[in-house]
Simulated scan of single mutants.
Amino acid sequence: MLGIIVAMDTELSKEFKTNRDCFIHMSDNRKFYIYENKHQSVVLCFSGIGKVNAASATAYLIKTFNITHIINIGTVGTHIPNINIFDILLINKCYYLDVDVTSFNYELGQVPKEKPFFGLSNSLNQNLIDLFNEHGVFYKLKNLGTSDSFIDRNNYLKFKNKNFELVSCFDMELTAIAQVCSKSNVKLSGIKIVSDNLNNMKISSEQFDSALVKISSKLTEILFLILDTNILSTNKES
């Protein structure tokens, strides 16, 4: 069964509720949107912002619905000059940007006894690539970093480390989702749309606010493509 995790409901347009029939399941004060069609069953939930919220929602989603695959969709910032606002990014690897236990000989970004980074599912990514190519959706394959901070020009120097140079975008959830999926043997992909760029002279939060309506519409279109496709049909373990 496929799970979709989104941090905020504002990252999807209101059409996601009105344009598709779904069953709403309430459990543990959480609301889950369950979509059923001839192709597949999909459960969507809004995790809330930040690593703990994302990890908690992921674990609950997997346990409650016997999820085998998850796609995280949402917004990201970037520090790369040639990545533009509204660019669609498919995530290859993800790193923690705010974890440092190097004093105990762990790699930068590595939580003790966990992986130093998390590679997302090659097979699920390939199915998404096939879907994007079929529908003319232009994307870029990039690495992502996660922190519990909204990174902007005022604080990015706190995160400008080795891992920051390895990634092209950053959010507040995906690596935590990946850590839970890794422990649970759940395949994971991340689809992100750029909401702000550190090279833009406009304040990052203002960029985000200005871009959100268009981004939510684009993310909803992508969600509908996934709901209308048996995205797991050709999936191979990877």
Score class of each variant (00 low, 15 high):
residue 227 L to M: 13
residue 30 R to H: 02
residue 10 T to R: 05
residue 103 S to R: 13
residue 44 L to H: 01
residue 4 I to L: 12
residue 24 I to S: 04
residue 224 F to L: 15
residue 163 N to Y: 05
residue 35 Y to F: 15
residue 158 K to S: 11
residue 34 I to D: 00
residue 207 Q to C: 13
residue 197 N to L: 08
residue 106 Y to E: 03
residue 57 A to W: 06
residue 18 T to W: 06
residue 183 K to T: 04
residue 216 S to G: 02
residue 68 T to G: 12
residue 127 N to E: 09
residue 215 I to M: 07
residue 77 G to I: 10
residue 31 K to F: 10
residue 184 S to L: 12
residue 178 A to N: 08
residue 133 N to M: 06
residue 26 M to T: 09
residue 170 F to L: 08
residue 188 L to F: 05
residue 230 N to E: 08
residue 3 G to C: 07
residue 9 D to C: 11
residue 88 I to C: 11
residue 4 I to V: 12
residue 175 T to M: 06
residue 208 F to P: 03
residue 1 M to T: 14
residue 93 K to E: 06
residue 212 L to R: 10
residue 219 L to V: 08
residue 183 K to S: 06
residue 154 N to K: 09
residue 185 N to L: 14
residue 111 V to W: 05
residue 99 V to F: 07
residue 4 I to S: 02
residue 45 C to Y: 01
residue 42 V to N: 05
residue 119 G to N: 10
residue 70 I to R: 02
residue 199 N to H: 09
residue 203 I to C: 07
residue 68 T to Y: 07
residue 36 E to M: 12
residue 165 E to K: 09
residue 13 S to N: 05
residue 41 S to M: 11
residue 11 E to K: 08
residue 200 N to Y: 07
residue 84 N to G: 03
residue 222 I to S: 05
residue 179 Q to F: 04
residue 184 S to T: 08
residue 20 R to G: 03
residue 30 R to G: 01
residue 89 L to G: 05
residue 17 K to W: 06
residue 158 K to T: 07
residue 147 S to H: 04
residue 24 I to T: 08
residue 137 V to I: 15
residue 121 S to D: 12
residue 3 G to W: 10
residue 227 L to R: 09
residue 222 I to D: 04
residue 204 S to F: 10
residue 17 K to E: 10
residue 206 E to P: 01
residue 112 P to C: 08
residue 215 I to P: 00
residue 186 V to N: 08
residue 97 L to W: 08
residue 227 L to I: 14
residue 39 H to T: 09
residue 199 N to Y: 07
residue 49 I to R: 07
residue 126 Q to A: 06
residue 97 L to C: 09
residue 17 K to D: 07
residue 66 N to P: 03
residue 110 Q to Y: 02
residue 191 I to W: 09
residue 138 F to A: 13
residue 10 T to V: 15
residue 60 Y to R: 06
residue 134 E to W: 00
residue 175 T to D: 06
residue 25 H to K: 11
residue 33 Y to M: 15
residue 23 F to W: 02
residue 160 K to G: 00
residue 133 N to S: 03
residue 64 T to V: 13
residue 27 S to F: 15
residue 6 V to S: 01
residue 170 F to Y: 08
residue 186 V to K: 14
residue 56 S to C: 15
